[in-house]
Design a protein around this nucleic acid. Structure first.
Lengths: 190, 190, 190, 190
DNA sequence: AATGAATGAGAATTCATTCAT
DNA sequence: AATGAATGAATTCTCATTCAT
């Protein structure tokens, strides 16, 4: 019966947090985040219990956003290589289009403040991708490694490709292509 | 702020900083670092102008330590593959032996507080390795990419291998081997 | 801030405030009080202008409750000693039966936030008891002191008896008796 | 070798805290306390770990001060009544001379933030007085009650006498005398 | 050079109160 | 009237840095 909690405001906080965490790291003050979201300092805490809660929800939000970007128009019935390429391209495109999200995510990842609950939720959101990787290595050289290892390899190579793209945007396409090729060689049969 | 006298104290501060940054991130208080180094709070500032200076010197220190570890007994006259393998193995061994250094380095890397001066100095310390990579891709599939790209690929794959090793130490050898193979496939001719 | 409708809700707020002030002191948040009363935060302020108003009304409410407990079945026509004993016993019984009210009252008493208006109203509610005390000291050793002094003496001794009863309930009866005897000796002729 | 921690500053903080807690209760801000002590906000926390620590040390400090006041020139070899009277008089004099200490003490007492460690230390400081009370009731009407009960009775009566003295200073002597008489009757044989 | 007390600008919350719904 | 989101001042405590000793 009172003013309902607004999804817009929650999103504004997450968006502001993304920008500020990307720029300043986890030290970004909640007061600054709230202000940038156009809200009073205290309002942030009606949407998030405390800073750790905000951080964890932000992590999940960005990861989910990334997953959605990767899975949009996913060519489920094409070849393994096509699907892998689709995932890779979407990943890179997302990272280049939203550098703040990408940076924030890596800050959050190394922060040591993401709880197991959050990482579990995140992992489950990526199960289709994990399944793809699992399939990809069935007969390949990494067949004895856990699928998560292949996922991690992809992430780290993509991260590298994005970093080089960011500092040298003219060569974006080249890094995207070269990165995927390297990845594909890394996990495929010769 | 006068000239510091004791190299031991400087090292003690850097060692303490490594531990604490690895454990708590860049938020680790200078007072705690000084105390863990067996010194008074203020003493830290005779050895380092301010926290950013400490952070940058720490980065350089760890990077140099890593370089030295990689280059020890470097088989300069063996085959390319042998030399690459040597580098890779030393990298992994170092990361597994000194997890705090590894974690601190990754915290420092994403902190946004490492100056260009520092990264330049670091890069120059790795010139031999960059040369090796340059050579490695002369005729390979990545021949049009900058050598730094290959270095970054190696770093990210090694980082991944180390992370999995840390969480599953029994399989250390497997990750080391599989990681190198993936890397070598990624940058070599089919 | 319009006229409140429900007496039930007012009582619920006061009851909740009693519990919370007893447990946490005057720092008890109005939001918590409202919630424990089964109401929304803002509703509290339709019943009480602000926190100080709530505090003052609470003080008066508990004092009145205590007075009613003391005066129930008051043996108006029995001896002075019997009447004093009646008052004393009811006081102690009340305090033991409602420890939260007792604690809240003492928190409120020392808070410095009870206005003169409130204390005056409270005092007038206790006029019968003051009259009794007045009578009691007519010929006694305290005949030159103000009746309020005797009331205060009774209150402080009763408070002490209750405190000891609370921490050692098995001896309840003994403290009640010994406390009264001490009080009666204190204000009576030898 | 650095500036030594100054006992003066510690005392200044405790004095400021006494004033402010007496006036505003436990809600008195640490920043205000520090400022009134002539120090920066943060300095308070080099002398006291946190606010609870300050509160507990303050309680002990005031209690000890009171004990010292009571025991100064204690006539150890005079009669029981003389010694009791000495204690009583010193107590009242102290309370009247230092109303802030008295008020602060009662605020602290009901705050629920004094730890058992603190109350134990306080009790042990009052052991001589407890012994006196113990002796006083050996053959008296309260001989079956714990000595602490008698101490509490004295405290509560003294508190009452002081309150009346404060609000009516002209009658100070009368309340002091009447209070002691009431106390002595309360605990002595008829 | 070394020490650690002193400083005061933040930081994350909390909370009485207001006000849109 | 009832609700609970919104507000922003206030609070406790932290921490890089300075400076008296």
């Amino acid at each position: 019966m009172a003013r309902p909690r607004s999804e817009d405001k929650r999103s504004a906080i997450l968006a502001a947090a993304t920008e500020l965490v990307a720029a300043q790291g986890l030290g970004a003050p909640t007061a600054k985040i709230a202000k940038q979201a156009g809200l009073a300092e205290g309002t942030l805490f009606t949407y998030f219990e405390n800073k750790d809660d905000l951080i964890n929800q932000l992590y999940l939000e960005i990861k989910t956003d990334l997953r959605d970007a990767m899975m949009a128009n996913y060519p489920a019935h094409r070849s393994l290589a096509d699907r892998a390429r689709h995932i890779w391209d979407r990943y890179i495109d997302w990272g280049v289009a939203f550098p703040a999200k990408r940076k924030a995510l890596s800050q959050l990842g190394v922060s040591g403040r993401i709880t197991t609950t959050t990482t579990d939720a995140s992992r489950s959101a990526f199960c289709e991708i994990e399944a793809l990787m699992h399939e990809s290595l069935a007969t390949g050289p990494l067949k004895d490694q856990p699928p998560a290892f292949v996922v991690a390899i992809m992430e780290s190579l993509a991260e590298t490709a994005m970093r080089f793209t960011t500092s040298d945007p003219a060569q974006a396409e080249r890094y995207k292509q070269a990165g995927f090729d390297a990845f594909w060689r890394a996990i495929s049969m010769k």
